[in-house]
Amino acid sequence: MLADIDTWVLDLDNTLYPADSALAAQLTHGILSTIAAYYRTDLAGARQIQADLVAGYGTSLRGAMLTGTIDPHDFLGFERRLDYSVIEPAPDLAAVLTALPGRRYVYTNGSAYHAEQALSRLGLDECIDGVFDILAGKLVPKPYAESLDAFLGRFGIEPARAAMFDDLEVNLALPHERGMTTVWVNGEVPSERLAERRWRAADLLGFLRANI
């Protein structure tokens, strides 16, 4: 069912490594701490602010920029303090990704720095042909059309021949409308076909092994 795919679009956080990773917890704490410092509140207040920003603007960063004056590089500075050694190498995933026909890209709302550090630790850096981050998207995140169009244009991707994997279902709606095969990696259920060219999977590795 993926025989016509020659471009593989991979989210990073909670997709190439699981949501229960210690790195995911560090990311959450880093974002909340940054919001708390910028808005001069505690972590409980930061959680509510983050929820409002994400609901209204797609990401905390974009919301903070549009409603305030924070510099994006200052906001993303917490990534430089993350301990990436908590990620375990993923040789099995590396082997499966390497065997995929065509090109493989990471499409993330994080920064290229974050992606590069995580990919290196996972042992996946040699498997990836390019990274499209929040800065490449001019700070417009998934799921907005401006971000998707910029990503597709940057790498010359034909949607009908591409499959996109993401842990957030909202990020897959527009790609599916554009003709991409989409796989929602939600960590909870076995692989299941939801509709034509739409799938749900417990994890990326298991889905690829079963369907390639």
Rank of each mutant, 00 (worst) to 15 (best):
D166P: 14
Y39T: 06
G110D: 13
A37T: 08
N211K: 07
S60R: 06
R178G: 06
G30C: 02
G130K: 01
E79M: 00
D129G: 14
L2Y: 11
A3N: 11
A202S: 08
E169M: 12
L43T: 08
L119Y: 04
D125E: 14
A173S: 13
A163R: 00
N109Q: 01
A24G: 07
L43D: 13
A112L: 11
A150E: 02
L16P: 11
R178H: 10
T28C: 09
V96Y: 13
E79A: 08
V96Q: 07
H73R: 06
P175G: 09
C127T: 11
R62N: 07
N186D: 09
P72W: 03
I49H: 12
I87V: 03
L119K: 03
D20V: 05
Y144W: 14
T98F: 11
H29T: 10
P89T: 11
L66K: 12
N186C: 13
I157K: 08
Y17D: 02
P159H: 09
P159S: 00
A202V: 06
A173D: 11
A115S: 08
L119C: 12
L122P: 09
G123L: 05
I128T: 09
E158Y: 04
G206I: 10
F132W: 01
D167Y: 07
M1V: 07
A145N: 02
N211G: 01
L32C: 00
N186M: 03
R121A: 13
E146G: 04
T41N: 03
G130I: 05
G56M: 09
L53H: 10
G45V: 01
Y107H: 14
T34V: 03
Q117P: 06
L119W: 01
A210P: 08
V183L: 13
A210T: 09
Q117D: 03
G179W: 07
M65R: 09
G123W: 10
D4M: 04
N109K: 01
A112K: 15
Y57C: 00
Y107L: 15
D125Y: 02
L100M: 12
S85M: 04
S21D: 12
N171E: 11
G63D: 03
N14R: 13
G63Y: 04
A95H: 06
M164K: 03
A24R: 13
M65C: 08
R104F: 02
G179T: 01
S85P: 07
E192N: 11
T182I: 15
A160F: 03
V54D: 06
L43G: 10
F151R: 11
D125P: 02
A162N: 08
V106S: 04
V189A: 14
A112H: 14
G187H: 15
G187N: 15
H29Y: 14
D6N: 15
L61A: 00
I5S: 02
Y144Q: 13
M65N: 08
R40H: 14
L66H: 03
P101C: 05
L174S: 00
